[in-house]
Simulated assay, not measured.
Amino acid sequence: MDSFDGAAFWAGVGWVALAIVVLLLITFGASRVAGRHNVIDTTWGLLFVGAAVVSFFASSGHGDGLRRWLLLALPAVWGLRLAIHVGRRSLGKGEDPRYEKLLDKAKGNRQLYALRMIYSLQGLLGLLIAAPIVVGAFEPRPVRVLAWIGVVVWAVGVFFEAVGDQQMERFRANPGNKGKVIDEGLWRYTRHPNYFGDACVWWGIFLVAADALPGVATVFSPIIMTLLLTVGSGARLLERSMSTRTGWDEYAARTSMFFPLPPRAKRALADS
């Protein structure tokens, strides 16, 4: 098949949306058992695993085989790693202050408000961001060079995210570092290596889809993710809470906010 099958694609979108709804309803049930809504943070990565699995099977006989496998493997590896990491990190902890603050605005039933403002919104956002996965899976044209560039960008992203998370865990495990700012490993070059890695992952997945039409039209997906990570609920909120820590001002002054760069002090010394 040489042309994009629109009817099959929209049927696939429906199945992906259903999978996301089911995952979120299961998560909501789990939140009532756990007594906290931040369990959805663990499900966030799993939403894209579900989207990738459903898209893979729904696109059978419609999309290029190799691209379908890439768009199954890349989101699945990233999403499962993220879910495991977030799940382990949240064990034994209470509710996230972000969700407590949000639920304080509820005028009626807090759980219905949570379904609408936490679960529904994240579900819609997940469906939008998953667009390269779903669209790309139905593209019939063979994989070309741009897709392999996307795989490399994705791999860089997974490296920064996974290594950055591991370095942060090791730093936090040392009681002597309590109240301090991490300034080692990847964190010397960017204040948010995990967020930078997350953005690279989604630009990489987009490039796999953008290797053929109409995948290029899904560019809004990595743009949305990058904005969320930099000016949305990611770096901006985290830096607000980190600004009270010892050494933060000096660290922020010499370290790139997002894109990895050599520390500014070293560049100044080299120029002098």
Rank of each mutant, 00 (worst) to 15 (best):
S233D: 12
S221Y: 10
R245M: 11
G45I: 05
W203Y: 08
A130R: 05
H85C: 13
V145F: 14
L47I: 06
R144F: 12
G29S: 10
R264W: 04
A270P: 11
L238C: 10
Y113R: 02
I149W: 12
F171L: 09
W187I: 04
T42S: 12
F196W: 05
I223T: 06
R254I: 01
P193R: 10
V22L: 14
P175K: 02
L127E: 05
A51G: 07
L238P: 14
L66S: 15
G179C: 07
R144G: 13
V208N: 00
F138V: 03
L227A: 13
F28E: 09
R245F: 13
V86K: 02
R89Q: 12
P214R: 03
D96K: 01
K178G: 05
S233Q: 13
W69Y: 10
V181K: 13
R144D: 15
G108N: 02
L70A: 04
L18W: 13
A252S: 07
A106H: 01
Q167Y: 05
K180V: 03
D183G: 03
W15F: 09
P175A: 03
S241M: 11
L269K: 14
A19C: 03
E95V: 03
L213R: 15
W248P: 06
G79T: 01
F171N: 06
S55C: 08
R67P: 11
A137F: 00
D64W: 04
I149P: 12
V86L: 07
A19S: 11
R88G: 15
N177Y: 06
G136F: 00
L128I: 08
L25H: 03
A114P: 00
E100I: 06
R254P: 01
S90E: 15
T230A: 07
F159T: 10
P193T: 10
F259D: 05
F160R: 09
I224H: 10
R264E: 15
L186R: 06
A7I: 08
V13L: 05
G185E: 14
D41F: 04
S241R: 12
L128P: 08
N194W: 00
L80F: 14
G14Y: 10
G50W: 07
R89M: 11
L269H: 11
F9R: 07
G126C: 01
W203P: 03
L74G: 02
I118E: 00
P75N: 09
V134H: 01
L121P: 15
Y189G: 05
A210N: 03
L82P: 11
A7T: 11
E161A: 06
F138Q: 04
V231P: 14
A268F: 07
L112S: 01
R68D: 08
T230H: 09
